[in-house]
């Protein structure tokens, strides 16, 4: 008795689901295969470009850190070897440093804009 009921359920469900599926398939407004392919290609290229650019960004960061470290090291060396000279020319040195800090980001922005 239970088996018969279960079979009836199974048949009813199968029929309902198939009707539902057919109705959905019939009404689906699908994009053309070419459009799906084109979008996938564009996205794959974007992903490839992002992956390719990642090591470059890392290298830029490392190079920037190296430049800052080198500048600090040179500054410390200069301070140790000739502190009087630095103190005498403190104003022009600070001005030059400030100018560099202003100009460097502008140069980076201009270089990237050209690319």
């Amino acid at each position: 008795m239970m088996d018969a009921l279960d079979d009836a359920d199974a048949l009813e469900i199968e029929r309902a689901l198939r009707e539902d599926h057919e109705g959905l398939c019939h009404a689906a407004h699908l994009p053309d295969a070419g459009l799906v392919w084109w979008r996938a290609t564009i996205r794959a290229r974007a992903d490839a470009a992002r992956i390719a650019e990642h090591p470059i960004a890392v290298a830029h960061s490392i190079a920037g850190a190296c430049v800052v470290a080198l500048a600090c090291a040179l500054g410390a060396l200069a301070w140790r070897t000739m502190p009087e000279l630095i103190l005498q020319n403190a104003v022009p040195l600070v001005a030059a440093l400030a100018l560099c800090l202003l100009v460097a980001p502008l140069a980076v922005i201009l270089a990237l804009a050209k690319d």
Binding site: H21, L24, A28, A33, W37
Partner: peptide
């Protein structure tokens, strides 16, 4: 493949 599967997959 798309013509064969897309409707069913969308449903």
């Amino acid at each position: 493949l798309y013509e064969r599967t897309a409707r069913s997959l969308w449903a």
